[in-house]
Write a protein that binds this DNA or RNA. Structure first.
Lengths: 150, 150
DNA sequence: TTAATAGTTGACAATTTTAGTAAGGTATGT
DNA sequence: ACATACCTTACTAAAATTGTCAACTATTAA
């Protein structure tokens, strides 16, 4: 029961983007360096996040990515779902549970299905805005307002 | 975000055991056939379940496995945790989160930690007894009491 | 208009994890 | 003794994950 590093990267990168962009496009190179995530890998992730319309892109010099919506409207669940593809904890739920016969299977199905719903419910209840606020609060401890800020 | 087939097998096998044993030891061979799980694989799983004192074994002919406790006291979470080893959704939680510095990481940590707690909470709230009852209700539909039962 | 930046996209390779197989052993009841 | 069935470790094959590479397109600025 592991979350892929893909999903961890994606969420971290989105928090980083949200913290460091203020309407300004943030190039992946920056995020890559700050978060220590391979640039090429990030590109793949943001490719998908863009298709999901979670971010938008600006090409060319001075370009980068920006949030496609206010961070309050971006849920962690969306980010995870987009890179993690099937958010069902078991394969036989992928087709809606059609191909299931054996009894003990059906019984356990309910467990996995319920689990999936809890997972999605939990992650969908957290917005990027919350994480951003928390991250900024954490940053303030390291370099308080009036400190080394330019 | 997948549950391993290992865990699925383990829960299904435990339900099967609970349904078909009435104090009688059930050999893995039977479970293997009914649930279509490779025998050798099952042996590995029950090896661990025994170490976790979820089941007990009876060796020799007529032997097999029995529940180590009443099914009401066996939680699905236990079964899953035993075969799934780390039930933390991310690796950096394994050591209790000691090796974590970057801010956006800490922020996301809280997410994964919360998620792990939810997962465990959900699975620990389901007892093998409940699943057994459900499974038996399902069986009754196929072969009602007074039917083909020996 | 040329060069540099930065996103776009697909293919591919390395690594790790998972699932499954095999084999030999030990205890026990008939 | 023999068959049953648990016990345990080692290994292999397949799949998924993670990461890399390369080539391309759009855009800005000198």
């Amino acid at each position: 029961m592991r979350i892929s590093t893909k999903a961890q990267y994606a969420v971290r990168a989105m928090v980083d983007l949200s913290v460091h962009s203020n309407g300004r496009p943030v190039p992946l190179k920056e995020i890559s360096q700050r978060e220590e995530i391979p640039l090429n890998y990030l590109e793949q992730l943001f490719f998908r996040l863009k298709k999901a319309e979670v971010v938008a892109s600006v090409r060319g010099p001075g370009g980068g990515y920006i949030l496609a919506r206010p961070s309050a409207l971006i849920k962690v669940g969306e980010i995870v779902a987009m890179v993690e593809e099937p958010l069902n904890p078991v394969s036989c739920l992928d087709d809606g549970g059609a191909a299931c016969h054996r009894i003990s299977r059906c019984v356990t199905h309910n467990v996995w299905q319920g689990l999936g719903e809890r997972i999605r419910g939990f992650l969908d209840a957290i917005s990027l805005e919350e994480l951003t606020r928390e991250a900024q609060a954490g940053l303030d401890v390291l370099s308080p307002p009036g400190g080394t800020t330019r």
